[in-house]
Design a protein around this nucleic acid. Structure first.
Lengths: 209, 209
DNA sequence: TGAATTATCTGACAGATCGTCAGATAATTC
DNA sequence: GAATTATCTGACGATCTGTCAGATAATTCA
């Protein structure tokens, strides 16, 4: 992290000093806050600049657009993901495995509670074909998909007896996790039911029950 | 449909004549096209107005914002859904049931191929808390969820032996269907695998296998 | 027919945003 | 404390938004 920070640069490529890094950080944080409060729609360069007591010109020194800021924020969000991967290790046998499945579900919900506003925009931009956001999403998902596929293979799930292709099943599971994590605040079922049910589906699919 | 068209009105509430209806329709269609081509980002009132050879003032006679147009388009997309509900009837026994599950999956993919650009924005706006879009999404989902829950109950799936709460399971299934339908163009697995796998998960979850 | 009435459209405008400079201001160096 | 470097912003032209009042087109009806 500190090593990568050294490289942070201006849009012209000039490396940033301490003062500039601070301003850049302010812009990132302010964008995150405005995004959570007002959503993508009410998010203008002018608003961001105002909220860090700067002129729009300053904003454009560091970022080329609002989207550009969101891209950097989404990249930062990816840094929280490695902790998730550990949960997929082992073979998920019995009660212990069910607990693991549950931990995965709650991890996603917590993750989306923190980064939801960003991830929604990342997903929209990726779905609309923006390759920068597609790459970012792929970087987030691929290790998770691989971990799921590996777990399924260790457990002999999705084998010859099943019609399920492991990678497709992993994609389906990540779809549940993403969407449910995005929903869970709003939806009219108990949190407990939702977690238990998703964990159960996850467990069955990844272990072959 | 024709009955509801009669009621279409100006933003001031004045009912529209034939010429005005035609212009309004042009605006809706143009928005749909621009949305598919350029995504939410490159979608301005000025662009829409230009593409129907009108001034922005004309646009504002019919819609209060770009979002407003999208809202109407998303409402229209809901009209294609009732056909889906029929697939959930019966008990989904054996091969016939598996075929039904597959039909549901392909229905969603076709539906998203047609309406994806709209549905993505609907979901984003709903997730960001816009109640108009939330209501629209609920109107689309609720009958599907009910049909799934009903099917599960008919099949004794998600009963006492299972940890799954029927409505939560239905939510999880709709998450898969939505997300996979949105993905399937982009994702690096064969279409066939994806459909078969999703259909299998759906079948197992809704019938209790 | 053509004048009156109604329906629809747009020019023009004020306010705001975007993105880009060149030059002002602040920090650091020597 | 003057020179150098780093950072910030005022000001600008182009564009957009949203709203009128008035122009234009369609319809009615004498």
């Amino acid at each position: 992290m500190s090593a990568s920070k050294q490289r942070i640069a201006d849009l012209t490529g000039r490396p940033l000093g301490a003062r500039a890094l601070e301003k850049r950080r302010q812009i990132l944080d302010a964008t995150r806050g405005l995004l959570a409060k007002r959503g993508l729609r009410g998010l203008r360069v002018a608003d961001i600049a105002r909220s860090v007591d700067s002129s729009p010109a300053t904003f454009y020194q560091y970022f080329s657009s609002v989207e550009d800021v969101v891209l950097h924020l989404a990249a930062e969000a990816n840094e929280d993901l490695p902790a998730l991967l550990e949960l997929f290790q082992g073979t998920w046998r019995g009660k212990e495995g069910q607990r693991r499945a549950r931990d995965v579900v709650t991890f996603f919900m917590d993750y989306w509670d923190v980064h939801g506003p960003l991830l929604r925009i990342r997903n929209l931009a990726a779905d609309e074909g923006d390759t920068r956001f597609m790459d970012l999403r792929r970087a987030a998902m691929e290790p998770i998909l691989l971990a799921m596929v590996s777990l399924m293979q260790r457990n002999g799930a999705a084998g010859k007896d099943s019609l399920m292709a492991p990678r497709s099943a992993a994609l389906a599971m990540s779809a549940i996790l993403d969407r449910m994590a995005a929903y869970h605040q709003v939806v009219e079922v108990s949190q407990e039911d939702l977690v238990t049910t998703c964990a159960q589906i996850l467990f069955r699919t990844l272990t072959g029950k």
